[in-house]
Every structure is written in structure tokens, then in C-alpha cells.
């Protein structure tokens, strides 16, 4: 039972890592589809809360996948998910980058880099939409998202500060 779950976690996150075109945000819709929809391992609320934990930590926000592993299968689950999510991409990048250099100036290389850029942006928007769907639940959270967007789009502020202020605001609005 537990070992089946570990194996499932491993292939889900290894697969997610292979399709993470354009960074971590791009896989959020698929991650939710699998974890919340297909396997029913997490509720939307839990998915949202674990995603938020990733926002508070330094380094890549997607390190939160380790917390998903921990929540679902304990410490071993965290390790398995972490390795499954990071090792395939690191190996691909390592080897392809070395080969990639040979194709400098090749029209195919340029076409891949230029063509995949808008796909990546479309995927980022989809990831953003997924987080918005499960996070914007009332007027407070809606206004919060809007204000943070406006500040970051027009001013240069460390997002971490706004993230912490955001959490504090909903905490104060809803009480302890």
C-alpha cells in the first residue's frame, strides 16, 4: 500500500519534471490535476497551503514538492519526491547543454529557443490561473492579489516582503 504510493509519487514527479517547460509554475496545472484530481491525495486547500510554504522559503519556490512528499508519505516520501523532481532535469540539462553548444547559430536551435518561449509564457499564465482559482476565494484575497500585482508590476520591491504582508493581512482580517 505504502510502497505503491511511493512508486506513484516517484513517477508522477519524475514525469512532471520532464514536462516543466518554462520553469516550475508551468507544471502547477498538471500537478494539481494529478494530486487533487486523479489520485485525490490532497484537497485544493492543502495544495494551496503547501504551495504557499514554498513561497516563504528561499531558493526555488518549487522546493515545496518535498513538503507534498512529506505530507503524503513521510520523510522518505519527501526524499523520493525531491530526487524524482530534480534529478531528471539536472541530467537532461547537463548533457543537452554540452551538445547544445555544437548547434550555435543553427536555425533549428534558434527556432527551438524562440518557439518555446511563448509556449513557456502560456504555461506560466496557466499555472498562475490555477493558483488564482484555488487562492482567490473572497474579496480580501482578490484585492490582495490585485494590489500585489500592481505594486510589483510598476515598482521594484522584494516580493518576499509583500508575500509576508499578504499572509499577515488575511490573518488579521479573519482573526486567529
Amino acid at each position: 500500500m505504502q510502497s505503491t504510493k511511493i512508486l506513484n509519487l516517484m513517477w508522477v514527479f519524475a514525469l512532471l519534471s520532464l514536462v516543466a517547460v518554462g520553469g516550475g509554475t508551468a507544471v502547477l496545472p498538471e500537478m494539481r490535476r494529478m494530486l487533487v484530481g486523479h489520485f485525490h491525495w490532497l484537497s485544493d486547500k492543502q495544495f494551496r497551503e503547501i504551495y504557499s510554504i514554498g513561497q516563504i522559503a528561499p531558493g526555488p519556490n518549487m522546493l515545496m514538492v518535498e513538503v507534498i512528499g512529506f505530507r503524503l508519505a513521510g520523510a522518505f516520501g519527501a526524499v523520493v519526491v525531491g530526487l524524482a523532481f530534480f534529478i531528471p532535469d539536472c541530467l537532461i540539462t547537463f548533457y543537452v547543454n554540452r551538445v547544445w553548444k555544437r548547434f550555435e547559430g543553427s536555425p533549428w536551435r534558434t527556432a527551438i529557443q524562440r518557439g518555446m518561449a511563448p509556449v513557456a509564457i502560456g504555461l506560466m499564465l496557466s499555472g498562475t490561473y490555477t493558483v488564482a482559482k484555488i487562492s482567490i476565494v473572497d474579496l480580501t484575497t482578490g484585492l490582495l492579489a490585485l494590489v500585489v500585482f500592481a505594486i510589483l508590476y510598476f515598482r521594484h520591491v522584494n516580493p518576499a516582503i509583500l508575500i509576508i504582508i499578504g499572509g499577515t493581512i488575511t490573518l488579521l482580517v479573519h482573526g486567529f
Binding site: 497551503e49 516563504i56 499564465l125 493558483v131 484575497t141 499578504g166 486567529f176
Partner: peptide
């Protein structure tokens, strides 16, 4: 729950701005 709810909402603003 309330704190993490606000963090997620703020993250939506951040992700939109980045995209």
C-alpha cells in the same frame, strides 16, 4: 490556514506580474 491563504493570494499577484 489564514496566514497561508494570504500568502497564496499575494503569490497570484507576483506570478501575474512575472508572467
Amino acid at each position: 490556514n489564514h496566514f497561508l491563504g494570504g500568502v497564496a493570494a499575494a503569490a497570484v499577484g507576483l506570478l501575474t506580474a512575472v508572467a
